[in-house]
Structures are given as C-alpha cells and as structure tokens.
C-alpha cells in the first residue's frame, strides 16, 4: 500500500466570503418567502399515532418491520447502543404515517428529552 499524504485544507478566503454571502442570502430569502406567504399557515397535523407510542412502551428496543436500519452503523449494535440512542423518525408517505428507525448521537440536543424519558423509565 502507498502512503498518502493528507492535504492541508486551504479554503480561499474570497471564495469563503462569497459562499457565505450566498448561503445567507438563500436563508434570508427562504425565511422571508415563507413569512410573507400567508397560505403557508397550515392546520396542525402533528399527533403521534397510537401504534408508534404504544410500540415503544411495550418493546423499548423493538425492531420496526419496515426499517432498513439496525446494523448499518459500522460500530455494530452494541457500539451504537453505547453512544447512540435509537429514535423513531416519523414521516408521511402521502397521507399515511410511517416510522423509520435511526440511531442518533447521545450528545445531540435532540436526545435531551428522550434521555430524560429513559431515566424516568429506569426508575419505574
């Protein structure tokens, strides 16, 4: 095998500033267009389907049938369980709700509430 020297990443500051400006312009335009579009005030449709919440309560580590992920993480399931948390991602296919399983890092801010919930479960 050959030694490959890793390149020092050099970002041209001009390109950098320029990219920065375009990203910010895109963000602004996105936010503004949504704000001014009054039709984009949707009715709420955010209830968690019963089967999802029940599924979790009954089998906290259950494997969802339609999910493609359990062992995709190269660290393996045990590794994944150590520094990652299993969550269900709720998506809509047309009007149908579906859940997909994923592992997200334990230190993600998203996990904070989930962690608290787990702690509560352990105490039970």
């Amino acid at each position: 095998s050959i030694q490959v020297r890793q390149k020092v990443v050099q970002v041209d500051p001009k390109e950098e500033d320029d990219f920065d400006r375009e990203l910010r312009a895109l963000m602004q335009e996105s936010i503004e267009s949504r704000r001014s579009d009054l039709r984009a005030r949707p009715a709420l449709n955010m209830t968690i389907p019963m089967n999802v919440s029940e599924g979790i309560r009954d089998h906290p580590r259950a494997v969802e049938g339609e999910s493609g992920e359990e062992t995709v993480d190269e660290e393996g399931v045990s590794g994944a369980l150590n520094n990652k948390v299993r969550v269900k991602v709720l998506v809509k296919r047309g009007n149908k709700q579906q859940t997909k399983q994923m592992f997200i890092p334990r230190d993600s801010s998203l996990v904070q509430s989930t962690k608290q919930q787990e702690a509560a479960e352990l105490e039970e």
């Binding site: 704000r35 999802v52 919440s53 969550v87 998506v91 509430s113």
Partner: peptide
C-alpha cells in the same frame, strides 16, 4: 430541523417558518 416528542423516542422534521 428535527424536533423530538417530549416523552417518546420519536422525532420529526419540522420547518422553522411557520410551523
């Protein structure tokens, strides 16, 4: 961006404006 349920290990994608 993602938000999670208060009591479940469930997350969804939600838009910043307006949802």
């Amino acid at each position: 961006g993602f938000i999670s349920a208060k009591t479940e290990s469930v997350v969804v994608l939600l838009c910043r404006e307006p949802c």
